[in-house]
Amino acid sequence: MLYVSQKEKKCVRYLTNEMSKAERSVFEIELTLDDDLLANFENFKTIWIRYPNSEFPKATTSFGKIIKKYNKPEKGKSIKSSLNYKVLLSTALLFFFCTIFYFVATPNSEYTNHKIASKGERLTFTLPDSSTVILNSGSEVKYSSDFGKRRDIWLKGEAFFKVTKNINSPFIVHTSDFDVKVLGTQFNVNGSKINQTISLSKGKINVLLKESKDEINLMPNEELVWNAKTKCIIKRNFDVNKVLAWKDNILLLDDVKIEDALPEINQFYGVNFVIKDAVIANKHIKGAFKNQSIDEFITSLEFILDVTVIKTIQNNFEIAKYHGN
């Protein structure tokens, strides 16, 4: 029996214009997050361009008529040409089968919602099912208007989710490398770094790694760390207060070298700090900076490290040696 994956069905439905405008938007979002889906789509698109719809029978034509038409022997055709026809026929049948099946199986959406946290901002909002989302600086999510029926949300960056329980409708967070499935819980997903993390504070979640198809369950105070380069997976306990501090507008630096802390500082404030002095780069910083503006943080930074922060251009700062009078 011919097996057709969900990804293939989506590709075919998109190419045959069977999707609504909203569904096409969601599909295009998925293409940016899922490399496998993109590869499938490029393959189908190539076939679609090379063999236009006009060369095929309509989808309403019975499979028997299609087979009869394309299996009819023709004089002067080589074996290679015959094989090409068979490949073409298989592709056509796959298109028709996927289109009809997926059209019936997939509900329509009215429009797509898009939420973006500006650089230096933490954005809190409520989903249609009353679940709460907090987006970290520079992060974004997209979801369909029928979210109450199918609770799927696509994340780029980092977000905290407080999910309203609904045993009849799982809540699924999609990223480029994994899907996080829950019923009702509180957890954090950070896909903005090489070491991507899913951290669970309450409830229970199931994580599906897209590449390996492995499924891993997490319990409260457990987190999964996935290295996007090495493909290494670590499951460990974590400090909830430290990992989730950002959602309460707290920049928490736990005795780290200032050089290592810069990526987190830059994301939190939506700016770009640089250090050119090796001595300064190796200085350690420790503190919880709550509700501080960028100017207030700079003042704290200068006091703690005994440095001077120089603004070079807009949103760019250099941390340099302090030169007293």
Rank of each mutant, 00 (worst) to 15 (best):
T132E: 15
S82Q: 14
L89D: 08
S109L: 09
I49P: 11
P73K: 09
E42C: 03
V163G: 02
W154V: 00
K115G: 06
L94T: 03
S54M: 10
T164Q: 10
F147S: 03
T124G: 07
P107R: 09
F56H: 05
I66R: 10
K165A: 14
Y51T: 15
G120V: 00
T91S: 01
K86F: 11
N43D: 07
E158C: 13
T106D: 12
K156R: 15
N113V: 12
V141S: 06
K77L: 04
S145C: 07
F97A: 12
K115L: 08
A39Q: 08
F125I: 15
L94V: 00
T132N: 15
I67P: 03
K165H: 15
F97P: 01
K75Y: 14
V133M: 08
D152N: 10
K69H: 09
I47L: 10
H114A: 11
N71R: 13
E74K: 14
V87S: 07
K75L: 06
L83P: 13
S62A: 02
W154L: 03
P128H: 14
K142M: 04
A39G: 05
P128D: 04
T46K: 15
K142G: 06
H114Q: 11
V104S: 01
K69R: 10
P107C: 04
I67G: 01
E74W: 02
A92W: 07
S145N: 14
L94D: 02
H114C: 11
L93C: 03
I134R: 04
K142H: 15
I116A: 13
N40I: 06
Y143L: 06
A105I: 04
S109G: 08
E121Q: 07
L89K: 08
P57Y: 02
E55D: 07
Y70G: 10
S139Y: 10
F95L: 02
N53Q: 08
L83A: 08
S54V: 02
N84R: 10
N84L: 13
T60Y: 10
K75G: 05
L127H: 02
F161V: 14
F103W: 06
S82A: 11
L127A: 06
D146F: 00
P73N: 12
V104L: 02
F96C: 02
T91H: 00
L88T: 08
F125T: 12
